[in-house]
Amino acid sequence: MNDEDSAHLLNLVRELRDEQGVTSIIISHKLNEIAEIADNVTIIRDGATVGEMFITPETPLDQDELIRKMVGRSLTNLYPDHESNKPGDEYLRIEDWTVHHPLDQSRVIVDHANIAARSGEIVGLAGLMGAGRTELAMSIFGKSYGSHISGKVFVKGKEVSLPNVQAAIDAGLAYATEDRKVYGLNLLQNIRENASMASLEKMSVHGVMNDNIERKEVEEYRKDFHIKCNSIDVNVGTLSGGNQQKVVLAKWVISDPDILILDEPTRGIDVGAKYEIYEIINKLADEGKAIIVISSELPELIGICDRIYTVSQGVVTDNVAKNGFTQEYLMKGMTKEKEVVAR
């Protein structure tokens, strides 16, 4: 849900409360929504109530205190400090990329898009729901979405053909889907099996999976990403949303990509887990990987990105440098009519 949709929903809840006396219970990880609408807040951590906060016009919500109660410690900043590296070589360039709807081939979903990402750079894609961000990412990643796809893809300066997902992986791309429970993970399998899923060839010897290699790789990333579990043989469906998201990231990082496309990487997880995901993203950028982040939360993109492309109606409308990051300016690009193609 984007900011505009969120505002409409909160207005509806407010009207139900003020005009009809309806009591509403809202469960949300978005602290700005809680601060705007709630009369009181109950904080739950690890299945137990850990605190309550009452809000009045005279005593607005103390978000720092709320975060402390949620994560069990203080966070002085919602986004970790990160000194951006000077971007390196261009790792990914998309030129004149056009994608039609898979069923209604007369509908253009992505319209002559041009984007690029360099080594060590975190690049954001900002747009309203339905703008075509996910469709752009999926179509690049082995033509996982769309029909009549045209345009050029360059990886490390060389034009490549990515007709399927395996070709995209072989070219050094990874795509972490926005829906981890449906497309990102097999909830019936354990952490080890999920995390190794994109690297079967890498972990095989003469076509046979090497259990020792698999366990060593997955255990290393379990520790590195601070995945909270008893062992890598635990069913991934039993993990919290934040830990499931870390398994999705581990799955793709183990495949050793040069370019990671992260679609809504913090959707539906608490503020503490979000912070840890941001730290992982920063670390991957520091290692020289090119990161593309799709998010419906503008503060998140502003907090972690080095550059942001705005997308409206399938068109890339602007390429905004970090010193131009404001929600107001980005929203202009996200609502622009189909007329400008940024290069």
Rank of each mutant, 00 (worst) to 15 (best):
E297P: 03
M138D: 12
E90G: 01
Q244M: 14
I291N: 04
G324C: 02
L188K: 14
Y91R: 11
V99L: 01
G272E: 06
R118S: 11
K338L: 13
V208Y: 15
I259N: 03
C229N: 05
N85V: 09
G124A: 08
N2F: 10
G132P: 00
E135N: 05
V108M: 04
I277H: 08
S28D: 09
Y183G: 00
N190I: 00
V71T: 13
E52H: 15
E135S: 05
I292K: 03
N186H: 10
G120E: 11
S199V: 02
H8K: 15
T49F: 12
T59I: 07
T177N: 05
N235Q: 12
T335I: 14
F54K: 10
E337I: 09
E95T: 04
A126P: 04
A195D: 06
M209I: 15
K158W: 03
G272P: 02
N319S: 13
N186P: 00
K86P: 01
N282R: 11
D270H: 08
Y329M: 04
L78Q: 10
S255T: 00
E300I: 08
G237C: 02
L10S: 03
R222V: 14
T335P: 02
L162D: 07
A273L: 06
S147T: 06
F54H: 14
I43K: 07
M70F: 09
D18W: 04
Y183R: 12
P257L: 08
E95A: 06
S204F: 09
V248K: 03
G127H: 04
L301F: 12
F54S: 04
L92P: 01
G242Q: 02
V320N: 01
I55C: 07
E65C: 05
F154N: 00
R215A: 09
F225Y: 15
D46H: 14
E201R: 13
V218K: 11
D233L: 11
L301A: 06
N282P: 00
T266Q: 11
K152N: 12
I277R: 08
K216E: 15
L103F: 12
R133E: 02
I26S: 02
I261P: 07
I227F: 14
G47F: 01
H148V: 02
G132N: 06
R14C: 03
P60F: 08
S255D: 04
R267E: 05
K86G: 01
R93N: 01
I122L: 10
A131S: 15
M70D: 03
Y275P: 00
E135R: 07
D39K: 03
K158H: 11
K322P: 02
N40Q: 13
K69M: 15
G241A: 06
A113P: 01
H8W: 14
N243R: 11
I259Y: 06
E297H: 03
S147L: 08
A321V: 07
I277F: 08
A171L: 05
K202R: 14
D170W: 08
E217D: 02
L260H: 06
D270F: 11
V22M: 15
S231K: 07
Q63L: 13
Q63K: 15
R45G: 02
Q189C: 01
R45Q: 07
G142V: 04
E83N: 12
L330F: 07
Q244N: 05
V50H: 03
V253R: 01
I304K: 09
I67P: 04
